[in-house]
Each structure stands twice: as structure tokens, then as C-alpha cells.
Design a binder for these strands. Sequence first.
DNA 1: TTGAAAGCGCTAACAC
DNA 2: GTGTTAGCGCTTTCAA
Lengths: 330, 330
Amino acid sequence: MTVPPPRRPTIKDVAARSGVSKSTVSNVVRGTGGVSEATSARVREAVEALGYRPNAAARNLVQRRTNLIGVVLGDLANAFDAELVKRIERHASERDYTTLVCNTGGRPELEASRIEALLEQRVDGIALLDFTGDRGVLAQLLAERVPAVMVSCWTEYADCVAVDDQEGIELAVAHLAELGHTRIAHVQDPIMEAGTRRARAVAFERSLLRHGLPVRTEWTLPADAAGFVGPDRPTAVVAANDYTALRLIEGLEAAGIAVPGDVSVVGFDGIEIGALSRMALTTVAQPGDELARRAVELLIDRIGRGHDAPPEQQRLAPRLVVRGSTRARG
Amino acid sequence: MTVPPPRRPTIKDVAARSGVSKSTVSNVVRGTGGVSEATSARVREAVEALGYRPNAAARNLVQRRTNLIGVVLGDLANAFDAELVKRIERHASERDYTTLVCNTGGRPELEASRIEALLEQRVDGIALLDFTGDRGVLAQLLAERVPAVMVSCWTEYADCVAVDDQEGIELAVAHLAELGHTRIAHVQDPIMEAGTRRARAVAFERSLLRHGLPVRTEWTLPADAAGFVGPDRPTAVVAANDYTALRLIEGLEAAGIAVPGDVSVVGFDGIEIGALSRMALTTVAQPGDELARRAVELLIDRIGRGHDAPPEQQRLAPRLVVRGSTRARG
DNA sequence: TTGAAAGCGCTAACAC
DNA sequence: GTGTTAGCGCTTTCAA
């Protein structure tokens, strides 16, 4: 049997104690002017004494806004996503928004029900991080006119801010080409949002062509060592992200293939642990904080401006960070 | 100038469209029995057609509960915390709770204001993860009778679930002693919650004594290489957590001190990347999912049972995972 | 400068 | 089975 939660003081209690009306208390609490210093002081004293704290649900109900934003993402265990969430939460709280986090784990059915929960909470907007679900979810949000921003993945139909995938992949391929590699493979991440995955794959082929390098479909590989044996094996890889790159290196070395001795590896994201000298992951770094800052800004703008303003897309420039996982072809 | 958000359909709209009263709609939506199949179908049709979704704020207001829980943590960039949040979110959502995440970044003033926001939202309970703030915050929560559970750190005064720090440290020290190490240092993490930090430090000394090893206060070190030079230097370290252990290894190797060649390192937590063969971190692993599961259970129990039930403490057993960062003393 | 009154969208008693 | 009613705690006109 359930014990009812303790009753918290309400605006009415404060009004009673300070001998004024609810509206006056409301005015004091919200800092609207037009209250005499004397009353104001009495009210503040009562607020203090009672430990009064306004009830967001009641305020939301009348204001029809919640100052809540939702963040939907695939996997908090992916360091890049986790860092992004952390930064978004910080930027949002600076603008007085509270963040609801939904980790979908890449399961579409979960994703739908989690987003449903966000919508029941009447979040003012939603940020979709590099999310794994199908675009149907996004379409639904747009149809319901819920302000949404895609972070770190691209769409024509909604606000988004992302790194320039093509430029990033080009940086990686150019780096490898410069090191003399000609047989370059691409390793994808199945958990990655489909559009971004495809964009990076396409950019990869295009870059190979630009550098006059052979394109081989059998060199689009999973993150294990199987594709890296045989006489004609690739000598370098561009991974779709750092998380995948790290797992790939693990698999390669377990199979006796040295990195960068036998195979050079370039990642994508720029997560912290890639910088540890033991990993020394050469990577295409995304400007994480800039991404988060702009995402929040875009979302809040959209919340303020409503659904009818045209979508805004922002591309940020990636940066190549050369470390020890790449080397000139032997 | 701000555009008002689109008006969402309310229970009244559904009632009007299906020609019944609000209460009947409410009964259908919530699945309370006692509605004829015919009306029920009509209502469901209207819900569907209108795209009706109940407004959580209104429900919260009348029910005096939100099905919201807050999670307060120091740093999402710490993989152990991120994994914990992910799991807590999953367990919570299975129990129909939505999670509000607050990353305090270890700044006490931020912590207070973030928790304030949680309380305005009237979260039903709060989980404090391994949090960096002072215990004053916890005291305040308890005083306000807000259900709270401490995860991965210990307190007498509230519900908590944590790994057995003493046993964990003992596992680490015993392992090093067995490998022949006698000069063993301890490296702390300044961002760690103070109680846990102290508990592990005390456990460390106690374990040394138990094994007849020398205790030297100057061997409680920061996570850099400075303490590991000189003739009488320690040959092994127990780090307060994996994150610190990894940074320590980085600093050590940058200074030309090999791990495990010159110094053996044991971590604490069992984060994923420690398992990569390049890191091969020997560590005291915490049962992460069990921790999260019990935390949610404890919190929901507390929410149901109210403030007066006595606090419940749970200790979970850690497990030593031996990998390559430790070796017999040369 | 202050107060009274009318909701916001919903649930929960209770009537019918 | 279904409808009526009375709030939940707040903001927001509007009057005084």
C-alpha cells in the first residue's frame, strides 16, 4: 500500500501566511514589477519560511510551455554521444531549459515509445542526436509540428547542425593517400543513423575517385579482421566513427595484424580516449561543443519562431587530428 | 516576437468528437474498465483521428505525482557514470518513469540550481550518482522528504546501493601483494564524491596493514608521474577509479615509466575501454547493471513507501578482473 | 499596488 | 455504463 507523498506548500499557503493574494505572491516570485517593497519582503519571508517552490506542472498547464527539451540518442555508452549530451544539457540549462534524456539503444520500438513519453510531457522541443531510428520518427515529429533539431546528422526537412561528412571523409582519404596508401577500405557502424552512414559511405567513394584510387565494394567491411587477410588486402581503413575504429583495432590486433604496421586506421568524431597515447587514434574531429551550442540555439530559436519558419541547416568544418594509428605505406 | 505553439487536442476535443463525456474518454485512455465496447471503440477512433495525447502536466497536477525521476551526476564524460545513467534510464522507463538528467560537472553551485529545477518539476525521486557535491545537498533533500537514493556511494542516512569499497580495494591490494609488490601507492580522483574517496583511501591503508605492507602517506598521489621517481619509488598503484588509472598510465608512460614493466596499475569500476587489449587494465569491476537495477528498485520502493520507512543500504560484491596492467615485481 | 475570478487539461468521487 | 462536479496549483486578465 502506497503512502501519499508529503504535501508541499502551495502559492496559497504563502499568500495566507503573508496576508496577500495569490496573484501578488505570483508577481513577487516571478519578479514582475509593481509590488511595493514592504509586501514583497513579507512575501519573500513567507516563501523562505515555508520552503515554497513553484510547481512546474501547474505553471506549464497555464503557460502551455514546459521549458523542457528532450534529447533522443542511440547509445550513451558511445563517448561522443555522451559528451554531446553533457554539453547540450549545459547549454540548455544556461537558457533555463531542463533536459529529458532518452537512450533508445538503437531499438526502434523503444524509440517510438520513449518519444511518445516526451510528447506527453509536452517538451518544447527535441534534439535527435545522431540517432539510430528511421526517419519516420522525424517525419511524425514534423507532422505534429514539434520543434526538432537533428544533431550530427543531416536532413533537408528540419533544422540540423552537423559536421561536413564529405569534407571529413575527404580529409581522411587525402591523409592516407598522401601516406602512399592505395588500397583503402571503409568500415561502417551498424548502430549509426542511416543517413549519416550512407553520407559517409558515399563521400568515401567519391574521395577515392578524386584521388584516382580503386573503389572496391568488397572493401566496405564490418569491424572485424576478416577483410584484412589475403594478398590483395587493404592497407588502410577509414572508419565511420571512433568507436568503430577502436573496436576494429582491437579485432585487427587480436588477429595478429598490426596497427599502424600492417594497416593504418583513421577514425571519425574525436573522442577523448582516442587521444590516449596507447590508442593514438588518428581521427577526423568534430567540434563537439560548437555542435551542442548551435543545436540548443537552433532549437530554442525554433521554439520561439514556430513551425513555419524555413528549416535551417548548418555545416561545421571537421579537423584532421593526426596521431599514431596511421603511417606511410611500407 | 514569439509564435504561440500549436494547440494540441485535449480530452475535451476527443469527448466532443465521440459524443461522450470527458470522464469516459479518460476511462478509455487509461484502460480503466467499465466502458462498453461500442463507446470504447468510438473514443479510440476519435483519439486516433485527432492525434490526441494526454497532457502529463495536467495529470501530474491532479495526481500529485509525475512519474519523473531525476539523476544527478558529476560527469557524463566518465564512462562509468554514462553507463550507469544509460542503465538507470532503461530500468526506469521499463517501470514507466521518465528520467531527467543533470550533469553538474562537479560545480556545487550548479548542482544546487539543477536540483532546484528537479524539485520544481516535482520529480518523484532522485538518484545521486557517485556525485561530487557536498552532503549538504543530500541533507536538504532528506529534510524536504524527497525520495533519494545514492548510487555507487555510501551513506547511513539514506537509501543507497554501492559496491563494497573495502572488499574491492582488498582484492586489488591482495592481487598486487601476491605478485610480490611491497611498495604500493594509492591515486585518488579529485572529482570523486568525497565519502567514497575517503572510504577507498581508508580501505587501502587497512589492506596494506593486513598484508604487512608499509603505509606511507607520501604514497597517496595525484594522477601524474611525479611520485614515481627516485630510488624508493612505489612499484604498484591502486587507482581510485578506471578513469584515473587510464590518465595515470598516460602520464607514467609519457615520463618513460613503463606499465606494467616499471609500475603495475589496478583500476576500479570496470569500464568498457579498459578491456581493450591496448589498455588491458586490471581492475576491480563493479556490477554496473545490478547497481542500476537496484537503484531504480530502491527508489521506486521509497516513492511507494514514503519517507518514514527506515533507509536501506545494499552492498554489492566487486570482482577482480586481471588483465595486462599488473605483473610480478621484477 | 493589490485582489477576484476564470481557466489551463486532467482525474476522481459520486450521482444517475 | 456514463455524466457531473470539483478541484490540482498556477498565471493572467481585469477591476478596484
